[in-house]
Design a protein around this nucleic acid. Structure first.
Length: 266
DNA sequence: GCAGTGATTTGCT
DNA sequence: GCAAATCACTGCG
């Protein structure tokens, strides 16, 4: 199967732009608008594919391209989405989901890890999109430190796929392929990052659009949940090396003829 | 496959 | 109040 992913030169350009100047005004691409998130999670989720998650820290800038997400529907959804944290209504933990769209909802799970959602829909609705995997773009050295992995140089997804990976060289995707892993790689915690506005130019955590065009999106059931397992609400860049979960998951492939992920499922 | 881990919520009294 | 159940995960065997 042919694999569609970011061209190496595009990734390098992004990486170099970030390294050259970490000022907000010089970050790659443009900040998304609030309206982007003020829609149903199942429509926001596929549009997020290909966008960049950018985190500025004192140690430098880390960035990853969003390659896998899941939509979690608010309490008013038909049918009810019992897998969603918000399905019973607001609680102290999930209040960010019921706030304005475009904010980070970070929660701890199994006492060991954190996961992050983006709030969607209008205030009070409780919809969200879970980030399941990123393709690392910048700050891989810091990500490896955060993950407790050895500081060897990481092969890019393209190198790995081209079988040019040298022995002893890790795959960059190991850093961020999974909802817990990506939070650990970026150092995201509930204490520091829950509730951050992803659309504020001054925010340390942003979602940006560098114009990458998405052409093939895989839609499958969600992973690792007990309730509402049948809903097709997991969206991924088809064939991307950095996806989490089983590689042989059945799903539907959607071809995006218009080019923009934002035109999906409209 | 399954153990480890702790925050969160629910369901009792 | 307190105990029990739940949990959208990861790493290891």
């Amino acid at each position: 199967m042919a694999i569609r992913r970011v061209s190496k030169s595009a990734s390098q350009r992004v990486s170099e732009a970030i390294r050259a100047d970490s000022e907000a005004s010089r970050l790659p691409g443009k900040l998304l608008k609030r309206a982007f998130f003020e829609d149903a999670p199942e429509r926001v989720a596929p549009r997020l594919l290909g966008k960049l998650l950018v985190l500025r820290t004192s140690a430098g800038v880390m960035a990853g391209r969003i390659v896998e997400v899941e939509a979690y529907l608010g309490p008013h959804a038909q049918p009810a989405d019992r897998a969603a944290h918000s399905h019973r209504g607001p609680t102290p933990r999930n209040q960010v989901l019921f706030g304005p769209a475009g904010h980070a909802y970070v929660y701890s799970i199994y006492g060991l890890y954190f996961c992050m959602n983006f709030s969607c829909e209008r205030e009070g609705h409780g919809g969200g999109v879970l980030l399941r995997a990123l393709e690392p773009v910048a700050g891989m050295e810091q990500m490896a430190r955060n993950r407790g992995l050895p500081p060897f140089s990481f092969a890019t997804a393209k190198e790995k796929n081209g079988a040019t990976t040298r022995k002893g060289r890790g795959n960059a995707c190991e850093l961020t392929s999974g909802p817990g892993r990506l939070c650990q790689a970026l150092g995201l915690t509930r204490e520091k990052h829950n509730g951050l506005d992803l659309l504020d130019p001054k925010s340390t955590l942003q979602v940006r659009d560098d114009g990458m065009r998405v052409t093939r999106v895989l839609v499958t059931r969600r992973i690792g949940i007990r309730h509402a397992v049948e809903l097709p609400l997991r969206f991924a860049l088809a064939g991307n090396e950095c996806l989490s979960g089983p590689k042989n998951m059945e799903g539907k492939l959607i071809f995006v003829r218009s080019g923009r992920a934002g035109r999906l499922l409209r």
